[in-house]
Structures are given as structure tokens and as C-alpha cells.
Simulated scan of single mutants.
Amino acid sequence: MTRKTLKKVSGGLIVLGLLVLLFPFFLFGYSKAMSNALREEAESSYNVENSPENPVQELTAYIISEKDKSSDTGETIPAHEEYQTGLYPEPAPELIVQPKNGEVIGMLTIPNLGINEAILEGTGQKELAKAPGHLPDSVFPGQIGTSIIAAHNSSTFRQLDQLEEGMEFSVTTEQGVFTFSVTGQQILNVNDTLPNMAYPAIALETCYPLDALYLTDKRLFVEASLIKSELKPKQKESLN
């Protein structure tokens, strides 16, 4: 190999190395620009305010049964109106229409990390380059089971490990506002799965370690459980 060829090869490797180093910064800038536009769309679409018609449901278990039951007064109580206090808040109902990949489905607000971002349906590269994404195979935020929200460690979730047990964050969707409390963290291999809880739960996922400038085979999960739900009036009507 001639000296001229060596110079070309070394020059190409240097350029390639610079591109690899600069890519996270490009991704961060692109994600920031896209998330700002998506946040405005989400804020206008999913703004939920507390009001007498939109009461807060705290520590109220939602019992799903196959048939109606009778109360002590002899009145028939529909299955969806049977509650038991002390377990978990009223969960989100089933969706009537499933969102398509790339659609804005809500807002993720984490005060401790200064995060207030739109959530897209889907966790492909196209979605995660713009904003946090909801894993379609998991339940919708606020429903019974474990909902998974993923984002890049170079953008939205770059400080995800700072979320400690007891810290709260919320997810706002067309169904209402759902507040979660962090229960813990764990690091898993990329092919490992989380259990689908029997109560409303959520897991925030990102690549680990958080400062990695390359693809990794580890994932950090911050797990949380539902502690408060504020269903929109139309959602409460759908249960009756």
C-alpha cells in the first residue's frame, strides 16, 4: 500500500471517527427540535384540568368481573362500578381505537428531571429519534399491566438513573392524567422481558450505560406503580 493510499485511508478513518463521536450530539439536537413541535401538539390535545366533573381517583381498586352483583340494598351494581378501596387507583379503560405508529398519544412529565415531552406510539428508530415512544405490545399507560415507555439515553432519558424510589411523574393521554410513583430500578439484557403486573404499572426504558456513545446490549428500567388517576368525563361515561 502506497503512502498516498495510507493517507487516504487514515483520513477516511478520522472522518468516520468524528462522525461517530458527533452523532449523539446531532441526535440530541434533532430530538430537541422535533420534541418541541410535538410537545405543543400534545399539550393542545391532551390538556386535562382538575374540576368537579373530572375528580381525582386515589387508592381505589377497579374490579373487573364477568357479571353484575347485588348490593346490600338489593340494587344491581354493574361490574364496572364495583370498587375496593386501598389497592390502586381506577385504571384507564380499554382503547376503542388503537393508535398507529408515529402518532402522538400523550405527554410524559417528570418534574425531577425537567422532562415534559410528547409520547409517540412505537419504539422504532423513527419514533425514538423524535420523542419517547410507547411499546405497542405493552398496555396503554394507566391500564392494568405494565406499560413501557422508551427513549434514547442521549436525549430525553440521559438522566433516567436519577429517578429514585418515591419520586413521582405523570402520563397524560386522551383518557386522563395518570400519576406514578417510582418503585425501583433494574438493568436487564436487551432480550429480557419485564413481568406484566396485575395492577397499573409503567416502566421507563433506555440504553445502559447512559453515557455510552454506542449501541449496547443492556437496558435500564425505572419501574413505577399508579398512585393517582384523573379520568376525563367521557372516559368515566364509557364505563357506565
Rank of each mutant, 00 (worst) to 15 (best):
K218W: 02
G184A: 06
Q186V: 07
E165Q: 14
A150W: 02
Y199A: 15
D192C: 02
I144L: 05
E164N: 11
R219Q: 03
I148V: 15
N189K: 11
N191R: 10
L213Y: 14
L188D: 11
A198M: 11
D211Y: 00
C207G: 12
T156V: 12
D192W: 01
T172S: 15
G166P: 04
L215V: 11
Y214M: 12
I227K: 03
V182Q: 00
A150I: 05
Q186I: 02
I202A: 02
T173N: 08
P209S: 08
I149E: 00
T173F: 04
S154Q: 15
A201E: 09
F178Y: 12
G166S: 10
D217A: 13
K218V: 02
Y208T: 01
L226H: 06
G184C: 02
F157E: 08
L188G: 03
E205W: 00
D192E: 13
M167D: 15
E223I: 04
L188A: 06
K218Q: 15
I202L: 13
E223Q: 13
I227G: 09
Y214T: 14
G176R: 03
S170L: 08
Q162D: 08
D161Q: 13
Y214H: 12
T172L: 09
P209W: 00
T183H: 03
P200T: 10
D211W: 00
E164C: 01
I149Q: 01
I149K: 01
V177L: 12
T193N: 13
M197Y: 14
N153T: 12
A224V: 03
G176C: 08
V190Y: 06
L226V: 10
A198H: 10
R158I: 05
Y199M: 13
S225P: 05
F169A: 04
S155H: 00
I149L: 12
N196V: 10
I202Q: 02
I227F: 03
V171Q: 02
V190C: 07
Y214V: 13
V190S: 13
G176L: 03
S181A: 15
A198Q: 14
H152G: 14
E164Y: 04
I144T: 15
E165Y: 06
E164A: 10
K218G: 01
V190P: 02
D211S: 08
A203T: 08
L213E: 06
L226S: 08
V182W: 00
F178E: 04
Q162P: 05
P209A: 05
F180K: 07
V222Y: 00
T146Q: 10
K218H: 09
D217Y: 07
T179V: 14
T156I: 07
A151W: 03
S147Y: 07
G176M: 04
A198E: 13
R219S: 02
S225N: 14
T206C: 03
E174A: 15
Y199D: 09
E205C: 07
V222T: 03
T146F: 10
M167N: 11
M197A: 15
T172C: 04
F157W: 07
F180G: 10
L210P: 15
T173W: 03
T173P: 13
